[in-house]
Simulated scan of single mutants.
Amino acid sequence: MRLYFYGMHGITLDVLVSSAQSFARSPDARMLGFSSPYRCLLHSLTHFALEKLYLQQPRCPSAFVFNFLLGAGGSSSQGLPDLLRFLFFGMHGFLDEIFFTFFFNVLGRGDGTSSGHTSLWSFLMYGSCSFVVEKLYFHLHYSRGWGTWKRVPVYVIFIYAWELSWGLGLRTCGACSWDYSHYPLNFMGLITLLYLPGWIFLSVYQDLLSNVLWRVQYVPAN
């Protein structure tokens, strides 16, 4: 799980830095950032090595990240606080989009570049969407006893509504980073049923992630 988080954290740093550099050269409301699965692996291994260094010398860079993951000091509580869950889901949104656009570029109808891209707006969009879907999961599963395939349609309807709402809002200020107008079964170029299998997969995966995050023992650093 730590390697998973370190890779996701590294991709987030890549996106933030590349987006800032691109915006400085040519201001673009879409605020696009770039990374790749290769860099994700590199970040995972590098941060894991730094973690080992931290265990020997706690004042190294990224100490806050390692305190959070290793649980240094304080009293523990089950599950991550809501703010940290939102941040986790936002970073995971970057991971999802970087991997998807990378493989689309390399294997699909993209431009063949060896990197994926996302937008800084995706952090807020994915973070908030996944946060709400997780609340739906806890309510529908634990309070109502709904099974996975009874919950998934609710998730998917919400996801499409969320994507459409964000798309409409971002499009009004020229900040929308996606356009599905050339895809079949699209609506206003902002949502498409072509991605339905992907959203179903991510909905099921979201439940698994929520279970993992709930088992995390959060220990605030002193």
Results as ranks from 00 to 15, higher is better:
A24H: 01
L32A: 02
L136Q: 11
L202W: 04
F48E: 14
W166M: 03
A63E: 08
G174C: 13
W199T: 07
Y183F: 14
K135Y: 12
L53N: 03
C129M: 13
Q56H: 00
F201I: 10
A221T: 00
D207I: 04
S75G: 09
S122T: 15
F64E: 15
I191F: 05
N211P: 00
S44G: 09
H182C: 03
G71W: 06
G79E: 00
V219L: 11
V132R: 06
S119P: 02
S19I: 00
G174N: 11
V65K: 05
N67Y: 04
V65G: 05
W121L: 12
G145H: 07
F103Y: 12
S114K: 09
G90W: 01
S75N: 08
S62N: 05
H92T: 14
W214H: 01
V17S: 06
A49G: 15
G174M: 07
G189P: 01
V133C: 10
R25S: 09
L16G: 05
V106L: 08
P220R: 09
Y126T: 03
A175F: 03
Y38L: 14
V17N: 03
I159H: 11
F86T: 12
G7C: 01
C176V: 12
L45N: 08
L55K: 13
K150N: 11
C173N: 08
H117D: 02
G198I: 06
I157T: 14
V132N: 07
P58T: 00
W214S: 01
I157A: 09
S119A: 06
Y137A: 08
H117I: 05
L32H: 01
L55C: 10
L80F: 11
I159M: 10
L84K: 06
S76N: 04
L202G: 04
V152L: 13
L190E: 10
L16R: 04
G112I: 12
K150I: 08
A63D: 13
E97Q: 12
V212Y: 05
T101L: 09
L185K: 01
R215T: 07
A49K: 14
I159V: 15
L209P: 02
Q78Y: 02
G33K: 00
Y6E: 12
Y195C: 15
F94H: 04
Q57P: 02
N67T: 07
N67I: 06
P58Q: 01
Y218W: 13
M8Y: 00
G108E: 02
Y218V: 03
H47L: 15
F89S: 07
L194V: 05
F131D: 07
Y4H: 10
G10C: 00
R25P: 02
F158D: 06
G79P: 00
K52A: 13
M125H: 03
M91I: 09
F131T: 15
Y180L: 06
Y205S: 10
Q217P: 02
D14Q: 00
F103W: 12
A72N: 08
P184Q: 14
F66Q: 02
C176Y: 10
M1I: 14
F187S: 12
F99P: 05
Y160H: 11
C176N: 14
V152F: 06
Y6H: 11
S62E: 05
L124P: 06
F48R: 12
S75H: 10
L45Q: 08
Q57A: 02
Y205A: 12
S114Q: 10
F104H: 03
